[in-house]
Every structure is written in structure tokens, then in C-alpha cells.
Amino acid sequence: MFENKYKVFENVDLVAEDMKFVGLVGPSGVGKSTLLRLIGGFLRPSKGEVRLAGKPVLRPSPKLVLVHQSIVTFPWMTAIDNVMLSLIPKHLGRDEARKVAINALEVVGLQGFEELYPKEMSGGMRQRVAIARAIAADPMVLLMDEPFAHLDELTAEGIRQDIYNILFNKNLPLRSVIMVSHNLSEVLELADVIYVLNGSPATVVARVDIDMPRPRSPRDPKFNSYLDLMYNYLTNKKGRQR
């Protein structure tokens, strides 16, 4: 609830299970990004709580890392320095931190670009730097707020194809990903579970478990039937009632 008593959410109950990619969809302005910030501890709910592995989340921590919709890279740091930022809480030695950062950059396909400044990179490369920074922090849960929104379709598709394998890599301690998007195809391509938010105050109108093998193709009839299902949830009059 905001200070002006405007109620944003009501009865929102989400579970991000182990090794699941969770999608969060809903119309613009419904509160998807706000919900992600609540999950990350950047905002505190006026009622209810967020738990990570049974413990309440009371403030931001590297165990729940947020990848922003706006590509956040620090222009005064090179790609590797940007990634090393997330290693600060680990208090590694400089050489070790550098090794971890190089590895994270390799994971997102940026080997050889370590010393470039963000201004010298394309949008796709910069978002990969932000993802590498998030991965390097060894989070348990990765929160992604429309991470492909500012990328061109080809770049976004390229990252989308890699991202699942990158994130659920055996070498990473990541247990779950929660991604917000208003792009239904994008979410269907990636998610194991999709929560549909709608209404005002927003509530979860549906939980859809996706049962499709990977890689998923938008040409697959099953893909389209899931798409129709979610479209129905989003356009359902009931979902919009006040």
C-alpha cells in the first residue's frame, strides 16, 4: 500500500520453487516491477512478507539480485569492474575477484571484452554485463525486470536462447529465477511456471504450469494454446474488476 493509501496488491501469493524459472505477466501498470522490488527487499510490504528459504527478506541482499529493465552499468567502470562490483560483499582478493568476473563474462559470451567501457558496447553487450554482474554475485534467486525490453529482437532472442542454460548451469548456486515481462511469448519461451497478475488492486488471477520441452518454438501449436490461455486470463473482465 502506498502512503496515499492506494492499495497496489491484494492476496498475492507466489511460490518460486527449486530450479524453476518463474514468469510474472500482467498488463502495464499492474505492479509487476513493484512486486519484484518487494520480493527483492527494496520495498517493504505494508502487509504480508517475503521469505527466502524460510527466512524473511527484510532488505536487499546479494542472495536476491535484481537485473533492471534499464540497463544499469556504471560508465566509469570497465566491463570487468562492473562485474567485480557484485563481488565486493564476498571480500575476495583482487586476483580472485578478477578470475570470477572473467568467468561470469565468459558465461554470458563476453570473453575478450573485459576492458571495454559500457559506452563502447552495444545495448545487448551492456545487458550481458549486467547479467554477468548478477551471476557473479552467486544469488539464490535472480529477479529480472523486463531484461530484454531495451534490446533489439535478434539480440534479445540470442540471449533468451542462452539464458536458461546460463542460469541453471550446474556450477551456479542459483535456485530460481523470477522474470517480469509483458511479452507473453518471451515468458512462454523461458518459464516453467507463469503467474498472471491482473486487476486493481492487483491479484494473481492464474498460475500456469508450462509443460513443454526446450527449446520452445512459437510455431509449436502447444505454445500457441498456452499463449491463448494467458491472453484469456489477461483480458478476462473478472480480472479487471475493482
Partner: peptide, 29 residues
Amino acid sequence: VPREMVEVSENYRLTFFEKLTRLYIPFSV
């Protein structure tokens, strides 16, 4: 300082000195 940058510094739990040297001071240059 853009809110997203502050959020990143909070996310990685930078200390007062780290926030100052890596975010606020460079931004103020």
C-alpha cells in the same frame, strides 16, 4: 544519482565507503 544505480549498490550491500567511492563520488565528478 539514478535510482537503479542506488538499487544495484544496495543489492550488493556496498558499505558507506564503497557506495561513496564507487557510485556517488564518480557520479559527482
